[in-house]
Simulated scan of single mutants.
Amino acid sequence: MGIELELHSARPARSSWSTSRATLLRGSYEHGDALDQALSTLDPRGSGRLRQVDPYGDTLFGEQEAEAALREIPDLLERCVYESQAAAVRDLAALLTACANTPGSYLWFIGD
């Protein structure tokens, strides 16, 4: 399963699946394992927003975190060994961009 992504127009309600669907703008569910593999190449002791993503739990980025994380995408793309990982990172970049450009939005990283 890996890490799935959901872009929400407002802070998603984690307590109820049906309630969180009300704010859902876009989801990415096809790159979960590849995204997990790509993010696992980052040093967890280093700086940066993407290092904060919990592969086993949920992580939520607001507009400012998304904008900061976008600066990490070129380095993360260089670390990709497989095309599936690069595709996952490009999809992540698109969702981070959308989040950074959508006032009040959140990007939800849903771990295993």
Rank of each mutant, 00 (worst) to 15 (best):
S105E: 04
D75V: 12
A22S: 13
S84W: 02
V81T: 14
L96W: 04
L96C: 05
E72G: 07
L60Y: 03
Y106S: 09
R45S: 13
H31T: 05
E67I: 10
N101D: 14
P12Q: 00
I73F: 06
Q85C: 05
T97V: 03
R14V: 02
R51K: 13
R71G: 11
C80T: 15
Q37Y: 01
S28I: 02
R51H: 04
Y82A: 14
P103R: 11
E72H: 03
T97R: 12
D43Y: 09
T23E: 06
R71T: 13
A98Y: 01
D36K: 10
E4P: 00
L7E: 04
A69K: 09
R45N: 11
T19A: 15
E67T: 12
A86I: 07
P44V: 11
S16D: 12
A98E: 14
A100C: 06
R49A: 14
D36N: 09
L77P: 03
W108S: 06
A13P: 02
S15T: 13
L25T: 01
S40W: 00
S47Y: 05
D58F: 08
T19L: 14
F109Q: 03
F61A: 13
L107K: 03
L95M: 15
R79D: 12
A10N: 04
G2S: 00
T102Q: 11
R49V: 15
A88D: 08
Q85G: 05
R49I: 15
D54G: 03
D54E: 10
L77M: 10
L42A: 06
R51P: 06
F109I: 02
E67A: 15
M1Y: 08
S105L: 08
C80P: 05
Q37K: 11
P12S: 01
Y106E: 07
E83Q: 15
S40Q: 10
A13S: 11
A87K: 11
V53T: 10
H31Q: 07
R14G: 08
E6W: 04
R21F: 03
T59S: 15
Q85Y: 04
S18A: 14
L7R: 02
D54P: 03
M1P: 11
S40I: 00
L39A: 01
S84Q: 09
G27E: 13
W17Y: 15
G57T: 07
R11H: 05
G32P: 08
I3S: 01
L42F: 01
D36T: 10
S18W: 12
D33L: 13
Q64F: 10
A87G: 02
S18D: 06
L25G: 00
E63T: 14
H31Y: 13
N101I: 03
A86V: 06
E30T: 12
V53K: 05
P74G: 12
G27P: 01
A93G: 10
M1G: 14
S40E: 04
Y29G: 02
R49F: 10
L70F: 05
T59C: 12
R49D: 10
T23Q: 07
A69S: 13
A69G: 14
T59V: 12
V53D: 09
R26F: 03
L76S: 08
A100Q: 07
L107P: 04
S16Y: 00
L77D: 05
S47I: 09
S15G: 15
E4S: 12
C80M: 11
Q52A: 11
D36A: 11
R11M: 03
A34K: 03
L92Q: 02
